[in-house]
Write a protein that binds this DNA or RNA. Structure first.
Lengths: 215, 215
DNA sequence: TCAAGTACTGTGCATTTGCACAGCACTGAG
DNA sequence: CTCAGTGCTGTGCAAATGCACAGTACTTGA
């Protein structure tokens, strides 16, 4: 049986409510949202139940179950910007936004996304604006693309850049994938003593890429 | 913080309850299940909230949101291979596999994924093995990257390739993004009469890209 | 030994909630 | 014209619900 436009409005409201809060609204909350009586809300719910859209559990507060499109609560991944103050830059609180994407889509699991800025990795097929999926780990194998976390000692700000990682002894090379850019060389031994060079740590390794757009 | 065995029991109970009924249990229902006081249930819920397993909405009946575990059903997209018999190649039945990814992650919505084979689009940052998200539509603007569906009249097989689309009058050019490859030119006017050239249609336009892997 | 955390019982209370019953106005089909 | 269905208002109530406060008992790490 087809829904009226009013009933569809109410069904949509319930679906959104469940997605945002994890539990269904009460009669009163439906009524408040649409500016009508609690009993009107109840009758709408009964109508939606008659039409097979929802199931009502009698006498139970918020006893609404969505039947058709099971509320698609999805996995989400935090997207981080380039710069953040303090430690650690990849804490969930610093997330700019959350994208609905299953972390298990990547192997190993992705822990966060990082938006690429610039063309320094273009020869690896990574263009500006791409979202790189990162698995959080503090070590990497030679040749892997990593999210490197660089600390500017003067300002105290951390920034994340994508680079290909190579290490020989205490010398770490962060290589761009673009002939027009120079590799960054960091000596971990010197780093330990002197406090002048930008400190560096591995935020994670690249496990995938997401591009949103037509080109 | 780790959960105690009792807390895990209660968390599992809530998860099962939500899966079976579509809404969370009340304090009293938790208490009834385990045979203890309503207030004991409340304290368990507070503990689970402290430990980040759930989120409690104050003063709301059944105001429990499950944070960690997410119910199974997610949006999925069909992944098509390169070659398929008969028409239409992008029918869901022909899907090789389904990936858990939200179609609404892309704008406009993605309808299917296509695995890229070869390096003909490398200058657009699309490498072999990438999964290209395609929005199903039969027309495209000049300069857009499309999934072109080519029909081999001799064998009757269709194949999908990714190309940049340009049209001048009845002449359609499908351009690779790699200097080492030649564009494919199709004359729709001639196409209509003669039956020798490979027929072509637009399967959809590219709306995004997904790469699974470290490089 | 002390403090903190876990794991309960027990009481009481203001609010919320589902639900029932009584109406009213409008619409579209038979 | 009638009837069923939709879409509301308004009142009232018993039960359910979250929550605060007061206790008790056990365990565990400092």
């Amino acid at each position: 049986m087809a829904l009226t436009s009013r009933q569809l409005e109410i069904l949509t409201f319930i679906q959104e409510w469940v997605r945002e809060r994890g539990f269904p609204p009460s009669h009163g909350e439906v009524a408040e949202r649409f500016g009508f009586n609690r009993n009107a809300a109840r009758e709408h719910l009964l109508a939606l139940a008659r039409k097979g859209e929802i199931e009502l559990s009698p006498n139970d507060a918020r006893g609404i179950r969505l039947l058709k499109e099971s509320p698609p609560r999805q996995f989400e991944l935090p997207l981080f910007g380039n710069i953040a103050a303090g430690s650690p830059i990849t804490a969930p609180e610093h997330a700019r936004e959350w994208l609905k994407i299953d972390p298990e889509l990547f192997r190993p699991r992705a822990d966060f996304l990082h938006r690429v800025d610039g063309d320094s990795m273009i020869d690896a097929g990574i263009v500006s604006g791409d979202l790189v999926a990162i698995h959080h780990q503090s070590e990497a194998a030679n040749g892997e693309i990593i999210a490197a976390c660089l600390l500017d000692r003067r300002t105290g700000y951390e920034s994340i850049t994508l680079k290909r990682y190579r290490r020989r002894g205490s010398k770490v090379t962060l290589e761009p994938e673009n002939a027009r850019y120079e590799p960054l060389v960091i000596d971990l031994a010197r780093e330990a003593d002197v406090q002048e060079l930008p400190s560096f740590r591995i935020a994670g390794v690249m496990v995938g890429l997401l591009r949103q757009g037509r080109s």
